[in-house]
C-alpha cells in the first residue's frame, strides 16, 4: 500500500496543533488540544485501511470496498470523545466556579517531593531510626 500524502500532512498538522494546545494550563484549551489530537489519531487509523466504496454488502464488489475495520474502531473513538468532552467541560466549569479560573494547578504532593529532593532527604516512608 502506498500512503496518501494529504492524510500524512494533515495528521502531522493536527498532532502539532493539538500538542501545542495540550501543553498549556487552561483546561478548555487542553480539551480542544485533545480533540485535535484525537482527530489526528483517527485519521492515522483510517490511513491504515484502504479507501473505496462504502462497506455495505451489495453496494459494490467486495474488492472495491473500503476496509471496514479502521472505521469500526474510529466510530467507537468518536463517541467516546463526546463523553470525554462533556466530562472535561464539566470539570472546567467547576474549576472556574470554585477557583475563578480553569487552570490546572501544580500537584501539591509532587511539590513536596521536589522539596525533599532539593534538601537531599528521604521520604521517611520507612524511618530507619
Amino acid at each position: 500500500m502506498t500512503p496518501n500524502l494529504v492524510y500524512v500532512v494533515v495528521i502531522g498538522v493536527l498532532f502539532a496543533a493539538g500538542v501545542s494546545m495540550l501543553l498549556e494550563r487552561s483546561l478548555t484549551r487542553i480539551l480542544m488540544g485533545m480533540i485535535l489530537l484525537g482527530n489526528g489519531v483517527n485519521l492515522l487509523i483510517l490511513l491504515g485501511g484502504k479507501a473505496g466504496a462504502p462497506p455495505i454488502v451489495g453496494g459494490a464488489p467486495e474488492s472495491e470496498m473500503a476496509d471496514p475495520l479502521p472505521q469500526i474502531m474510529i466510530l467507537t473513538a468518536i463517541v467516546i470523545t463526546l463523553g470525554m468532552t462533556a466530562f472535561l467541560l464539566a470539570l472546567a466549569y467547576r474549576s472556574w466556579a470554585m477557583a475563578g479560573h480553569d487552570e490546572v494547578q501544580d500537584d501539591v504532593e509532587d511539590r513536596r517531593i521536589m522539596l525533599l529532593a532539593e534538601r537531599d532527604e528521604g521520604s521517611g516512608a520507612e524511618d530507619n531510626s
Binding site: M1, T2, P3, Y7, V8, V9, I11, G12, V13, L14, F15, A16, A17, V19, S20, L23, G40, L43, L44, L47, G48
Partner: peptide
C-alpha cells in the same frame, strides 16, 4: 515539542502504511 510531535506522527503515518 509540538512541531517535533507532528513530524514524528506524520513520519509514523507514512511508514506504518
Amino acid at each position: 515539542v509540538a512541531v517535533a510531535s507532528g513530524l514524528v506522527a506524520a513520519g509514523m503515518a507514512y511508514a506504518a502504511v
